[in-house]
């Protein structure tokens, strides 16, 4: 579904409108949208720094902007990933993910799309990432779309939770203190019947 949002696959029916731009007809959504879906968004033969500069140049940022951005996320990298004289393809999955996520924040995008951002990250990085996402979401100009299978992460980070089951919207709720219970009950309910694959999509504005 995130692939549809990025116009990487064609919709079989309907269309998506983002910020008044119809995604399958115009490319004007590209400057204000950024995403990290999987490793195919990384360029394996670059170092993380080179990758940031490359994305930065595409998004109209200069080298100093990027250096400042890398510095501001230094605690997120936690001394790993950047400055190690390693190419992206030689980094661990978790460090690759960190690089991908930070790259998706380059150039102040208004729509940030992150697919399963918490997977493969160590607990302390997960906590830092939650803080980053929350800070971003507090900016009224920015929308962050996050998908996750983890209900705790979802309820902690999201302002609006959309539950999809086999492509259909099952729930669409503003988050409150009762949301976690509500979601959990829902999944306990279906796990007792059968085991379908359900994705939780969260959105915050």
């Amino acid at each position: 579904m995130f692939s549809l949002l990025l116009d990487l696959i064609q919709p079989s029916s309907g269309h998506i409108v983002s910020n008044d731009v119809r995604i399958d007809q115009s490319e004007d959504w590209k400057p204000f949208t950024s995403a990290f879906i999987d490793e195919s968004f990384l360029i394996g033969y670059l170092t993380p720094e080179e990758y940031f500069y490359f994305i930065g140049e595409l998004r109209g940022q200069n080298k100093a902007d990027i250096d400042a951005l890398i510095a501001s996320y230094s605690d997120f990298f936690n001394g790993e990933a950047v400055g190690q004289k390693k190419y992206l393809r030689d980094l661990s999955k978790g460090n690759q993910k960190k690089v991908g996520i930070v790259a998706a924040l380059i150039g102040k995008p208004q729509v940030v799309i992150l697919d399963e951002p918490f997977a493969n990250l160590d607990p302390s990085t997960q906590i830092r990432l939650k803080k980053i996402i929350k800070d971003l979401a507090n900016d009224p100009e920015v929308t962050v779309l996050v998908s996750s299978h983890d209900l705790i992460h979802v309820t902690e980070v999201a302002q609006r939770v959309v539950l999809l089951e086999k492509g259909k919207v099952v729930k669409d709720i503003e988050k409150s203190s009762a949301t976690f219970k509500e979601l959990e009950d829902y999944f306990i309910g279906i796990s007792e019947i059968h085991a379908p694959v359900a994705t939780v999509l969260t959105e915050e504005e």
Partner: peptide, 12 residues
């Protein structure tokens, strides 16, 4: 090809 999705979702 290995990062074609990135290229297609950036403003290139």
């Amino acid at each position: 090809s290995s990062y074609y999705k990135l290229m297609m979702s950036q403003n290139i």
